Amino acid sequence: MVQTKFQAYASLKPGEKLQQWEYEPTPLGPHDIEIQVTHNGLCHTDIHMRDNDWNVSKFPLVAGHEVVGKITQIGNDVNYFNIGDRVGVGWIRNSCRRCSACLRGEENVCRQGYTGLIVGNHGGFANKLRTTADFAYKIPDNLDSASAAPLLCAGITVYTPLRTYIKNPGMKVGVIGIGGLGHLAIKFARAMGAEVTAFSTSVSKEAEAKSFGAHHFYNWNDAEKMQQISGSQDLILSAGSSEIDWDKAFKLLANNGVFCLVGLPVSTLNIPLLSLVFGQKSVVGSVVGGRRFMNEMLEFAAINQIMPMVETMPLSHINAAMDKVANNQARYRIVLVSE
């Protein structure tokens, strides 16, 4: 049977603007689904992949890994979805399913290495997507598609460490960087019962940060204020993509505090060892999340009405949208809507 070609926006070479492109999809496997794409959250990772910053991109590249749409075809062995179901797909396409991490629902740290949706595969910047059904997620009815899309990467990226390290209500949680990740971190941390402090170099973001749920806001460049709250935070989530003063960040941590990186600045982390050892502090990283937390996060967001601040643009404006994200002009996530 002749396959119908999918219409996509692809980068044909590293660093090139995306252009209209079509490709022949792989046959629908017994464990696969086909999705009519309606919404794509635009993540900075899509730009990194376009530019091959991590040397893992394969071209032509169809990016897009915060995908929402409706199921149009179902593989023969898929018995938990129906045609027409609204589903989302995030960064992880598949994993080994057998290691101890996968069996815990932590496929994001699969011991064999998970398969990324857009690493060697085509993603959601297209009219349709075929992917593994087991890594698609039903979108709760009271989450609209434009709000749900960024949750599939940005949302799960901050939810996983917050869910892991917030042990009780009233914990003091600091969020460094009020952008696509940070504004969602504030919302989730507040809903989990934490006392939330936002840190930013952009003083103009104070009102917005507090509207997201931050109890306190501090200008990162105000040395006197930062000194006054030294040792105050039980958990700090570093959500920015720019290098910061790591020593300053560590001084904010309380004893037994956890410093967690989810943003990826291109830099070397210099850890102040005396503070680390004598304060019994921890430095951790966290990458997206597995199926256990993804399903939980979507339900938590629906119940608590945690939605990102989004700006919608037509998918055909993908290059303009990427420029806006690259220039730090998005407030706070751009969602591309299929036309």
Rank of each mutant, 00 (worst) to 15 (best):
K5Q: 11
Q7K: 11
A8E: 09
G15Q: 02
K17Q: 02
Y23Q: 01
H31R: 03
Q36G: 09
T38W: 07
N52V: 06
S57E: 10
P60N: 09
G64Y: 03
V67D: 02
V67K: 06
I71K: 13
I74R: 13
N79C: 14
I83M: 06
D85L: 04
V87Y: 09
W91N: 04
W91H: 05
I92K: 06
L103Y: 08
E107T: 06
N108H: 07
V109M: 10
Q112G: 11
G113D: 04
G120V: 03
H122N: 00
F125W: 11
Y137W: 01
P140V: 03
A148K: 14
A149I: 03
A149S: 03
Y159N: 09
I166A: 05
G182K: 02
A191H: 11
M192T: 10
V196K: 03
S202W: 05
S202A: 04
S204F: 09
E208H: 09
A209Q: 10
W220F: 01
K225R: 09
K225H: 08
L235K: 05
L237P: 09
S238P: 03
S242C: 15
I244Q: 07
D247T: 13
N255S: 15
N255I: 10
N256C: 07
F259Q: 00
F259V: 01
L273W: 06
F278T: 11
Q280N: 12
K281L: 02
K281R: 11
G285D: 01
V287R: 11
G290A: 08
M294D: 02
E296V: 10
L298Q: 03
L298A: 00
I306N: 00
V310P: 04
E311K: 13
I318A: 02
D323H: 07
Q329D: 14
Q329K: 15
A330C: 12
R331L: 11
V337N: 11
E339H: 14
